[in-house]
């Protein structure tokens, strides 16, 4: 990351390819959140509260999508996520370091 953060933003989108913004303060349901993404202004209406440091969807994310932040893949959605929803462990999962799934694959045949 080679940029400074914009003054007075409610949320920050790190890269134009990102599906999510990070809340820079505690945000309430119904708030219209404005952000900059790749030099363009965007806004999204929050469907639920999102705490400082947590993520919100800036676009609709279909189930099974590789979700991006910093322009890179941070995980995969496990449900449809509407723009304005809180994005966290309840609707995205990690793809890497998943020993639980390795075991499920191996054990699957025996069950």
């Amino acid at each position: 990351m080679d940029h400074s953060l914009p003054a007075g933003a409610d949320a920050i989108v790190m890269d134009a390819r990102d599906h999510v913004a990070t809340a820079l303060r505690d945000l309430q349901a119904g708030e219209v959140v404005r952000y900059q993404a790749g030099g363009k202004a965007g806004s999204v209406t929050l469907l639920e509260a999102v705490s400082f440091g947590h993520k919100l969807a800036v676009s609709d994310i279909s189930e099974g999508t590789e979700v991006r932040k910093y322009g890179e893949v941070i995980g995969r959605s496990v449900a449809f996520i509407e723009a304005g929803r809180h994005v966290h462990v309840h609707n995205i999962e990690g793809i890497r370091g998943r020993g639980d799934q390795a075991e499920a694959k191996e054990g699957g045949g025996a069950l």
Partner: peptide, 23 residues
């Protein structure tokens, strides 16, 4: 045989908004 999540990111990381090890 475990998911890294919970160990890393830790419960505190997750409370702070980090969802996955990749993030």
């Amino acid at each position: 045989g475990a998911d890294m999540r919970g160990g890393n990111p830790s419960p505190g990381n997750i409370a702070g908004g980090l969802s996955t090890i990749e993030e």
